[in-house]
Write a protein that binds this DNA or RNA. Structure first.
Lengths: 246, 246
DNA sequence: CCAGGATCAGCAACCAACCCGACACAGCAC
DNA sequence: GTGCTGTGTCGGGTTGGTTGCTGATCCTGG
């Protein structure tokens, strides 16, 4: 253990959450080269669904009985308050697990988040009971799930990092970098975030307001750091953007 | 599915994260009534350690090779920036798993958080390899870990909720409620948060500054909502405190 | 293809919350 | 005693929330 002054980078470069679908298969199910997706699809009571953008996957208060895995698209977990205000708790990408609450105990429990399709979503799901049984029958299924959940935790924790920045500019920059990591597709002029993001949606994710996001995005665009074309943001150079931390 | 106007509460009352140690044992290891703690303690290469308050458990940059479970006390995961600024990513309580990064892939990876004992900590740990092997031998171990991780995710997500509040007052109140949930011990005059929290520590957890926390805590105390005795906060009535959301 | 509505982006003026810097003092350890 | 850490307080200045309005863009159904 050396001192406390090693290379701490502000750019979220968690190696393990870098590439979607990077979960390495290990164990018996893996020997057949099964991915988590194929495992879940093979379970009793599983289903494959396509959900249109904006449609609800589950409501708060619904019973938590299934586990979901995103095959394509993005899902937004949010919390709705009495005031009508809504905040985004997580933006889940391909290969993300959600609805894991249902795995927690044997007892019934209810969803407390609202899950909506942020884009058109293809996903597979299975009853929590089947998942539990599958784990007992084939331990490598447990391992796959474990790895999926671990990467969810890392994702969520980088989001916490983003949210503890005090000034909104840093917060926005940090969030954009997270989005590049999770939803970025490289192009010839930079990384394009493959989501149609309204300013309002960004505000709800980082705890700000629509007006502020408009202003800050305008600044970043004027400084030649990014470009917005039909609600899709292209970050020209993530490294340069990362220098924008205050 | 009924309408969108059901009882959304701002008070974090996630049933499944309510009581520490509420992970219900299911499966083969569980038939011997094994808890996650006993399972890990029984693994090859496991160790039981006691860490003094303020001591480091692992540094960023250290190789990620062990999985930890807190038996007693609290652990702080934080990120240190070049500027010397430090933010808290998670405050982990008894029965929380951490260091799960090491489970992710077969390859080597490095810690990117700093884990320090926030109180005196008793914990058990085991090499990631042993944990993997244990899962393969006994599937119910996987289930136990899965449940541990699920509850970590829920915990982290409520923290995100806390951090998306726009005004610091709401953020502080929300954080205090989270602390009551995770570290609260009921007494005759309310719930006491069993941590010695400096204002600075709170600021680092909710993305604010020491001065602001001092002011806001002063307000709450003056309004008869809480009491601070030798750095331990007692919330008289969480419900009343929850009304303090702006 | 176009009309009409809904959602979204951009802008300005106002104002307060809160960050910053600075300082004084209390408690505790050594 | 002397540090050290933590708490309490005060102004000045700025970020960013709020409100309100306008025009652009997108979507849908005729």
């Amino acid at each position: 253990m050396v001192g406390a002054t090693r290379g701490f980078s502000r750019y979220p470069s968690n190696p393990s959450t870098g590439a979607p679908g990077s979960v390495a298969p290990i164990g018996a199910a893996a020997q057949a080269n099964l991915t988590l997706l194929e495992v879940i699809r093979g379970l009793n009571g599983s289903s494959v669904e396509t959900i249109e953008r904006g449609k609800t996957i589950f409501f708060p208060g619904d019973p938590a009985e299934r586990v979901y895995l995103i095959r394509r698209g993005a899902v937004r977990l949010s919390r709705v308050y009495e005031s009508g205000e809504e905040i985004t708790v997580a933006l889940l990408r391909e290969n993300s697990l959600f609805g894991v609450l249902s795995l927690l105990t044997g007892q019934r429990s209810d969803r407390f988040y609202h899950a909506i399709a942020f884009t058109r979503v293809e996903m597979v799901s299975a009853p929590a009971g089947s998942v539990r049984k599958a784990i007992e029958e084939d331990a490598s299924v447990g391992l796959l799930l474990l790895q999926g959940l671990s990467s969810r935790i890392l994702q969520t924790e980088t989001m916490i990092e983003t949210l503890t920045h005090r000034d909104m500019s840093s917060r926005l920059v940090s969030f954009l970098l997270v989005l590049c990591r999770d939803f970025g597709v490289p192009g010839n002029s930079g990384i394009t975030i493959d989501l149609r993001l309204s300013h309002q949606a960004i505000a709800e994710a980082i705890g700000s307001t629509r007006v502020t996001i408009t202003r800050l995005l305008g600044d970043l665009r004027q400084d030649g750091l990014l470009q917005i074309d039909r609600k899709k943001i292209t970050v020209f150079d993530p490294i340069a953007l990362a220098k924008r931390f205050s």
